[in-house]
Design a protein around this nucleic acid. Sequence first.
DNA 1: TTCATTGCAAAAGCTTTGCATGTGT
DNA 2: ACACATGCAAAGCTTTTGCAATGAA
Lengths: 140, 140
Amino acid sequence: MEREKFKEFLITKGLKSTKERDEILNEVLAMKKHFDPEELFIRLKAKGSKVSRASVYRTIPLLLEIGIIEEVERTDRHAHYEIVSKDRHHDHMICMNCGNVIEFYSPTLEMLQDEICQKEKFQGLRHSLEIFGYCEKCRS
Amino acid sequence: MEREKFKEFLITKGLKSTKERDEILNEVLAMKKHFDPEELFIRLKAKGSKVSRASVYRTIPLLLEIGIIEEVERTDRHAHYEIVSKDRHHDHMICMNCGNVIEFYSPTLEMLQDEICQKEKFQGLRHSLEIFGYCEKCRS
DNA sequence: TTCATTGCAAAAGCTTTGCATGTGT
DNA sequence: ACACATGCAAAGCTTTTGCAATGAA
């Protein structure tokens, strides 16, 4: 499914489907939560793959572009990514003039909930974020 | 005010009050929004200060420790910080068992609101985040 | 055959650190 | 005088890039 999307994308862009790219995508899809490039590389190595770090770093922008992964907050020194899933939590932006509601999703926000809760020793189960303001049409 | 806090902190820790640390703190306090180490360094240079990048990098952890600044999300390659202000927006964690409400503040969340709104061309004015779950006492 | 891709190693960008020198207390 | 601080330059880490060799279409 994601695999087909990837292949299609590569063809459309005049790029090539390679063993390395397949291996990387597979490993990304095997990740449960968010990950960083080094982690991905280590796992691939551990599985006997011969991909180089360079290929991992070069494939990530492609996966970002198709929307298979998204960038999450950088907590450490390095970048973090997570897989985009279909049925996921979303939050709302509410226009104070026309009442229009815009849904949005932010992987960073989802991570943030975990971090904040951990700091307060709170067991967070769900959250609701509402941003109030004016939508594109109604803003002056 | 922040300056006294800093001096006190240094004394308590057996550290020394130096011209460089003063200059850095002053420049940090002069920053309106969030900043990164390089920006801070450039500004100090521009003002004729002779502090080194190393001192900037070595002073930041101290300011973090006293709570004069907080770390904000890393959007680029480098770290960002912002000054902690007293009367600031806060959000809530609500215990679904005892109803206890914990207030918290997250600089990253504040930045996130801006970023998300920009993406959707929404003029965000305020937000409300509520995290539901169980507090330390009530979690099983 | 023709380009894109790969791996390697070198480079780049941000941050940290070792060391000799300088400076508050 | 004694620690701790500072500046410099070198080292450390993560990420990017140049290049020759390789491989998909």
